[in-house]
Simulated scan of single mutants.
Amino acid sequence: MTQLFVIKIGGNVIDHPQALDAFLEDFAGIPGPRILVHGGGKIATRLGEQLGIVSQYVQGRRITDDATIDLVTMVYGGLVNKQVVAALQAKGCNAIGLTGADAGCIPADKRPVKTIDYGWVGDIDPGKVNTGALGALLDAGLVPVMAPLTHDGKGHMLNTNADTIASALAVALSGSYAVRLIYCFEKKGVLEDLQNEDSVIPLINRENHARLLAEGKLADGIIPKIDNAFAAIDAGVKEVLIGDAADLRVNVTGAVSGTLIVS
């Protein structure tokens, strides 16, 4: 099978121009098929505050009301996505910016209200990902750059966690490619002690994951990454890494620098 890298870059790197530029330089240099999924939460929060829209979060996930879905569509699908695409084009990488609505790439269902009403937030069934459209883009030598937005098929955009999108893409495409899913952010990996940058947990499995949660050693922001890593593994993706964006060159060679998630 052809190797495919599905790589997610976090908002904290996007907020720092030098770190982002270095990451995109490394990403542009990866040979063969790859897909980039980006976040951008802090930019949306900052611009939202300027517009009088205050962000609310529960367990690291944004509550998306009517005003917020307009905001994140503009910021994620517009400003951030097109800046990343333009930067990659400047580095010789023929990128194409997408949301889940484009070519119907990622349909989703609006999350049902249970104990929490998340608003216009989408949940993805990887089986509904339009792998034909994505495969055609990859076959044409294009590099999809996916914003963290999906659609409900009824004309509504849905805010969807970028980690979830990366996981769904990895699962959906694993039938056609040998997929390595890599979550890149500003830390060296999953840290046992947030005050110690070198306390990287090299391996997380179901057993120690339960212990780490019970001991409160996993920060809210990392929990969705690990949940989605396990979801990808359960669905057939064998390689999931969480590591430093600066280590991307290592992590596309078959080596591991960061935290490896296994079943």
Rank of each mutant, 00 (worst) to 15 (best):
H16A: 08
Q18S: 09
D26K: 07
F27W: 04
P31T: 10
G32L: 13
P33M: 04
R34M: 07
V37R: 04
G40Q: 01
G41I: 01
L47V: 14
L47E: 12
G48E: 08
L51N: 02
I53D: 04
Q56S: 13
V58L: 00
R61D: 06
D66F: 00
D66L: 04
L71E: 06
T73P: 01
T73N: 11
G77R: 05
G78A: 09
V80I: 15
A87R: 10
K91C: 00
C93W: 00
C93H: 00
N94C: 05
G97P: 00
L98A: 12
L98D: 07
A101M: 13
A103V: 01
I106E: 08
V113H: 14
Y118E: 09
W120F: 15
W120N: 11
G122Q: 11
I124D: 10
D125T: 15
A133G: 07
G135P: 01
L137Y: 13
L138W: 08
A140I: 06
P144I: 07
M146E: 05
M146P: 00
K154V: 02
N161D: 09
D163G: 08
T164A: 15
I165F: 02
I165N: 05
A168Q: 04
V171G: 05
A172I: 08
S174I: 08
Y177P: 07
A178F: 02
I182Y: 03
Y183C: 04
C184L: 12
V190E: 02
D193S: 06
E197D: 09
D198G: 03
D198H: 13
S199F: 05
I201F: 05
I201D: 07
L203E: 08
R211H: 06
L213F: 08
G216H: 09
L218K: 10
P224N: 09
P224D: 09
K225T: 06
I226S: 03
D227H: 11
A229G: 14
A231N: 15
I233K: 10
G236A: 10
V237I: 14
V237T: 12
E239T: 14
V240I: 13
L248R: 11
R249T: 11
R249F: 01
R249N: 04
V262E: 14
